[in-house]
Amino acid sequence: MRPEIWLAALSDELRRHGVGPDLAGHVVAEAAAHLRDSGEQPLRAFGAPAAYAAAVADSVGGPVAAARPAGPVRLRAVDIVKRYGRRPVLAGVSLTVRAGQVAAVVGANGSGKSTFLRICAGLAGADGGRVEVHGTIGYCPQAGGTADFLRADEHFALIGAGRGIRRGEALRAGAHAAAALDWRPGPQQSRHLSGGTRQKLNLVLAALGDPDVLLLDEPYQGFDRGTYLDFWHEVWRWRDEGRAVVVVTHLLNQLDRVDVVLDLSASTAGAAA
């Protein structure tokens, strides 16, 4: 097949596979440059147009992700500076997250991920910069955050009350959210729950009352593989509902599906030592 014919067929197939015109143009131009540079036969280098278009569509996550417009700004952190004594932890870190977006905060241990999230949540002060939050916040810490001598339903009622939710409604919402994480809360006090189940409780509490901004600090510790996937499904669902979600994570295999990546190892390089 001659390159021009193959490229024209690729263009059609990209459209058929829901790849937007801008990206499709880039993909075709890149393939054309490759064919010209290499002198290879298109079928040998790229395979059939339909198969290659399918691979491209697969790589960019399909048309759904590309078509979704982001909403208004929910969280804006500008030039956040934080020092512990003379040690700079955050040196001018900025992040903007809009409604319907997921941001991942990544970086090595000690790069200030949790500190940054706590500053965004208003739980810790900064030495410089500012945080704007437009809407309500739900915060899920890495550990702790639950009361040892309360049962799960008592947590739901307590946190719900703080957010102006009636008891019955809070219990229903809590049980519903727990079920999405494959957990049926029982009568135990939370000190008797496993670490993973306590984190499920934490996560349910963070999301109770449908806050506009969800700040999640590695909330999946102790989750098994299945629950870990359930957790990310919840994240996508929150995003699709128009919430702004910030996830501190060191697991990077989900990064291809988030909208914003904030890498703290770069901004504080050399500071953590």
Binding site: H34, E40, G47, A51, A55, V56, S59, R257, V258, V261
Partner: peptide, 18 residues
């Protein structure tokens, strides 16, 4: 490495911000 293998990998790296 064929183009049909390489470019989708590059797209994924781009999409994931790497």
């Amino acid at each position: 490495i064929q183009g049909g293998t390489l470019y989708p990998v590059l797209l994924r790296l781009q999409r994931s911000g790497l």
